[in-house]
C-alpha cells in the first residue's frame, strides 16, 4: 500500500490552552486521533504515549466524551537535558458524540501508547433494515 512506504514527517505536538484555569501546572497537549464509525459502533484511536492505565480518564457525560491522561515523570532526578525537541505534558481532548451510546458496553484498550475506545451505539440507534414487500 502506498501509505505504508511513505516517510513519517515530524509533527509537532499540539499544545492546548485549557478553557478553565488548571489547578495543576504543566503543559497540555492534544493527542492525534482517528475516529471511524460503522453501523454498530464508533471507534476512537488516540496516541497518548507515556500514559499508563491508572492515569487515564475517560468520561462520557451528556454526549461529551472527555479524554485526559497524565504522564508520570520518567526522568531520573539527576538527569540533565542536552537536547530537547519535544516536551512532555498531559493529554486532553473532548468530543461531542451525536449518537446515543450504550454506556455499559464501552470498551477501552490501551496498548503501546495507543488508546482504542469502542463506543457501541444503542440498539435502537442502529439502523434496522426494513424489508419492502411487494404486493
Amino acid at each position: 500500500m502506498a501509505t505504508e512506504t511513505q516517510e513519517l514527517q515530524v509533527r509537532e505536538k499540539q499544545e492546548v490552552k485549557p478553557t478553565a484555569e488548571p489547578t495543576k501546572p504543566g503543559l497540555m497537549f492534544t493527542p492525534a486521533v482517528d475516529i471511524f464509525e460503522t453501523d454498530r459502533e464508533i471507534t476512537l484511536l488516540a496516541d497518548i504515549p507515556g500514559v499508563k492505565v491508572r492515569d487515564l480518564n475517560i468520561d462520557l457525560k451528556e454526549s461529551v466524551l472527555t479524554l485526559s491522561g497524565d504522564v508520570a515523570p520518567f526522568e531520573g532526578a539527576d538527569e540533565q537535558d542536552i537536547l530537547v525537541e519535544y516536551e512532555v505534558g498531559r493529554y486532553f481532548r473532548q468530543f461531542t458524540i451525536p449518537e446515543v451510546i450504550d454506556q455499559s458496553k464501552i470498551d477501552a484498550n490501551l496498548r503501546d501508547g495507543v488508546l482504542r475506545l469502542t463506543l457501541p451505539k444503542l440498539e435502537k440507534a442502529a439502523p434496522r433494515k426494513i424489508a419492502v414487500k411487494t404486493a
Binding site: 526522568e75 539527576d78 538527569e79 542536552i82 525537541e85
Partner: peptide, 22 residues
Amino acid sequence: VFPMLNLTEDKDRYYVRAELPG
C-alpha cells in the same frame, strides 16, 4: 526528522527518548 528526540545525561549514562506510540 521523525522521531523527535530528547537527550539527557547523568554521570554515567546518556538517555535518548522518543515518543513512538503504536
